[in-house]
Design a protein around this nucleic acid. Sequence first.
DNA 1: AGTCATATAGTTCATATGAACTATATCAAA
DNA 2: TTTGATATAGTTCATATGAACTATATGACT
Lengths: 208, 208
Amino acid sequence: MNYMTQEFGIWEIAVLALLREAPMHPYQMQRLLKERHKDEILALKRGSLYHAIGRLERAGLIEVENTSREGRRPERTTYRIAPAGTESLLDVLRRIISTPRQESSEFMAAMSFLLHLPPDEAALQLAERCRRLQWQIDGLIAGLTAASAHVLRINLVESEYLLAMLKAELAWVGSLEVDVRAGKLTWNTEYLLKGAAASRQAAGNGKD
Amino acid sequence: MNYMTQEFGIWEIAVLALLREAPMHPYQMQRLLKERHKDEILALKRGSLYHAIGRLERAGLIEVENTSREGRRPERTTYRIAPAGTESLLDVLRRIISTPRQESSEFMAAMSFLLHLPPDEAALQLAERCRRLQWQIDGLIAGLTAASAHVLRINLVESEYLLAMLKAELAWVGSLEVDVRAGKLTWNTEYLLKGAAASRQAAGNGKD
DNA sequence: AGTCATATAGTTCATATGAACTATATCAAA
DNA sequence: TTTGATATAGTTCATATGAACTATATGACT
């Protein structure tokens, strides 16, 4: 009933979704995703496409329809989705939507170790992030406004989501910066690093 | 001035940050991160730690302090941070904080292809996600409240960030579900898939 | 005394990733 | 007409990832 639903990456989902529209060859998938600006938003690296296709084929989720050649260009292999592929696609979509997962982000890591920067430096970088988030938001809004004239809303939900998340992040980062600048949140890097080491030693350098 | 600042993963940052507190061996890093619940929030897989350490050592950012052995257990190698390591750590932190990056998430991919599910099914899964997000939020708030009694706020910022993001996601997913349930946002999967294929063919099956 | 779970400490290996490369065709400008 | 940019279409290969494995020690419980 579910085939290999676990090990799905983003490329696998994209490939199955595209092949559900019509059979096509890998290069066409790239063009289509680019045309629809999904490549930026999903951060797809083209080099990984052919690997994903290989995996899907081995799993029996897609099939070769035919191979053709124009002039002396490389051969084009056209794929189509298999019935199992459609089922798998819907399975993963259901699972991903229903089940939030803790995906690790660089920024969370940086926040985890924020105390390594002195407060004034931290405030500076946070302010810069705010500026760039605002640019991104402005750009995204412009794009959404332009697109909504000729694209159905269902095809823009991922951008709406991204926009909501960027706005929330901007608000949070902004408020953190304010707290740091106002001294409402502050710290002493030297002290914390020494302190942590000392308390660990006091605790017998071992178990908590 | 900046050494290999680009290819830093989350493990690299964690290792440098920990070694800045005191020299220690890899296993102790794991324990410390677990003790501080950073491992969950950063989604660190322990198998990758030793690889990260190898890279950092080759890059000259950390150094072996000594190796010891207790009984017949495997050897423990204690590392310390090199001056270049401290600089690199601060460099990456500054860069990551100041520069938002589009990191690709599963959920964004699912939203990109939401039209593959029929609207009522989509609403169902979105509702389930809301429920689980709410649990996560409740748990996180409980954890934060408990921790704030004996942990400095600077050591909890990443959880505050996560909380803000989860709340924003819950709000957005909730409003999307409402829109779908109310028919304010709806779609016809069959029609859209056929339509997309047809319009591509009309456009000469090629360049846009 | 024996078994079971857990902590200690790290290694191996199959698989995944993505930057760079290969090679041709086409069109525009100089 | 030669150069240079871009589109076409996919492959290679060094490196990264992480699940599973190795092997001992310790304490708990039966």
